[in-house]
């Protein structure tokens, strides 16, 4: 068995995300639906957060369009293994463009947490780091210790190349922290923070 399979993740998701965001103050953040959106909101609401509540499989693609439009700002996508797997081809699209300012963080508990903790592909043989590297994202790596949040944040802030971190989190369910569900509000607030009008 590959050492990168998710047998038992040890990282506390809330603590990791909180440290990551605290150390990435300039980041424009996109969060994938479900628990990653709750984790990002629990770390403190920010105008520069774009929380997804749907569009499963679209988090990295949305982050890519944003990163290409804002090359001088770091863009951080925080999503889960199920969401990333649904849009896994997008890693090839990212690999083709190599946006220097995009960092992808997959919080991997090896399960579909929102729907009853069914095992996901990362518990059943998929090695996401190998997948990302195969798609051309060379700086793809696994994180097994909470203390490495700062190391990931350093990549976010440096904007020196696309990076992909698979973070092996504990398969638990912290209390829900629900971000705003009004997509129009979140979109307009995000654009206003960048100095753009509604349309």
């Amino acid at each position: 068995m590959s050492t990168t399979l998710n047998a038992s993740g040890a990282v506390d998701r809330r603590a990791f995300v909180s440290q990551l965001i605290a150390a990435s103050p300039d980041a424009l953040i996109v969060s994938g639906l479900g628990s990653p959106s709750y984790d990002v909101f629990a770390a403190g609401d920010r105008d520069q957060n774009f929380y997804l509540w749907g569009a499963m499989g679209g988090a990295v693609a949305l982050g890519l369009g944003l990163a290409l439009a804002q090359p001088d700002r770091p863009v951080l996508v925080i999503t889960g293994d199920g969401e990333q797997l649904m849009g896994v081809g997008t890693l090839g699209t990212v690999g083709a463009k190599q946006p220097r300012n995009l960092t992808i963080v997959v919080l991997d508990n090896g399960h579909f947490g929102e729907t009853g903790m069914q095992r996901s592909h990362t518990s059943l043989g998929t090695d996401l780091v190998a997948v990302a590297q195969g798609f051309g994202i060379k700086d793809a790596f696994a994180v097994r210790e909470a203390g490495r949040a700062g190391e990931v944040a350093e990549r976010v802030m440096a904007r020196r190349g696309v990076a992909f971190a698979q973070v092996f989190i504990k398969p638990d369910e912290p209390p829900r922290a629900l971000p705003p569900r009004d997509g129009v509000y979140v979109k307009n607030r995000f654009r206003a923070a960048l100095g753009f009008s509604t349309f």
Binding site: A55, G58, A61, L62, G65, L66, L68, G87, K187, L194
Partner: peptide, 16 residues
């Protein structure tokens, strides 16, 4: 193609 729906939305979020 579905990637593209999200890419163009992200572009708009970033002002393009």
């Amino acid at each position: 193609e579905e990637e593209g729906v999200a890419v163009v939305s992200g572009a708009w979020l970033g002002g393009q």
